[in-house]
């Protein structure tokens, strides 16, 4: 997948490639354009120049619902659940385009996130932050994506939940879903990454495997806080 020029001059030339089944992690300082990058990939922002390919097909500037059909799922950082819908209804909305799969995928998602089973008839707005994040990821998984985009899935969570979320991400990836996520907790995230991208001022400065980036002293010094 190639990410091109983004809109509003926040992204000034980004180039990323992620193979299917890989976990890609985008890290970088505040204002580097990490979330913008993810939104551009998911068609929520205009891509002014360049192209984005999914499985070799150009997908830039396609509306989100077509991207969902093509196997992309997106979990925004904030407002990522439907608060007045129950957990189960939230998940059903994820499979809106594939209603025939609802039953099978519900079981699979409950498998990934067992805590959701007993909460399934509760409105999602009443859940805790970590549980909400699970609902949000579960909703995106319901469409059986081949690539899942996660925007800071651990933002604002307690360390306990953070670990659990990273655990789930690994598990989801093991089930054959490619992951591209933006993370603030760079060290933990890079530890599970097949590929890491360090973004700064709208450009990707370093691209390597997660482990290699963690070991790189330049990266560590400038972006991981020593």
């Amino acid at each position: 997948m190639h990410g091109g020029y983004g809109s509003m001059n926040i992204l000034n030339g980004v180039n990323m490639t992620l193979y299917a089944d890989e976990v890609g992690v985008i890290v970088g300082p505040n204002g580097a354009g990490k979330s913008t990058m993810l939104k551009a990939v998911f068609g929520l922002l205009n891509v002014n120049q360049g192209e984005i390919l999914l499985n070799g097909q150009p997908i830039h500037n396609l509306p989100p619902n077509q991207l969902v059909e093509r196997g992309m799922g997106f979990v925004p950082q904030e407002k990522n659940v439907f608060p007045s819908l129950t957990v189960k209804e939230n998940l059903e909305m994820g499979a809106y385009l594939k209603p025939q799969n609802v039953k099978r995928m519900l079981e699979q998602v409950y498998d990934f996130f067992p805590p959701l089973v007993e909460k399934r008839h509760q409105p999602a707005g009443e859940l805790s932050g970590g549980q909400r994040q699970m609902v949000a990821m579960g909703r995106a998984l319901m469409a059986e994506p081949s690539l899942l985009l996660l925007d800071e899935p651990t933002a604002g969570l307690s360390p306990l939940y953070m670990n659990e979320i990273f655990d789930r991400v690994k598990k989801i990836n093991a089930a054959g879903v490619g992951i591209l996520m933006v993370e603030q907790n760079a060290k933990q995230a890079l530890a599970i990454a097949d590929k890491g991208f360090v973004l700064a001022a709208g450009q990707n400065r370093f691209t390597d495997t997660g482990a290699a980036l963690l070991a790189d002293p330049d990266v560590a010094k400038s972006f991981l806080g020593g």
């Binding site: 998911f42 929520l44 509306p63 989100p64 619902n65 969902v68 059909e69 997106f74 925004p76 407002k79 990522n80 659940v81 439907f82 608060p83 007045s84 819908l85 209804e89 939230n90 059903e92 909305m93 994820g94 809106y96 385009l97 209603p99 909703r139 469409a143």
Partner: peptide, 22 residues
């Protein structure tokens, strides 16, 4: 399904769109 999608859109229009709801 349509009714639930309607409630979903009233809750959070952006997320409804991201879920593939027209």
């Amino acid at each position: 399904r349509l009714g639930k999608a309607m409630r979903a859109m009233s809750d959070n229009p952006e997320l409804a769109q991201a879920s593939g709801i027209n």
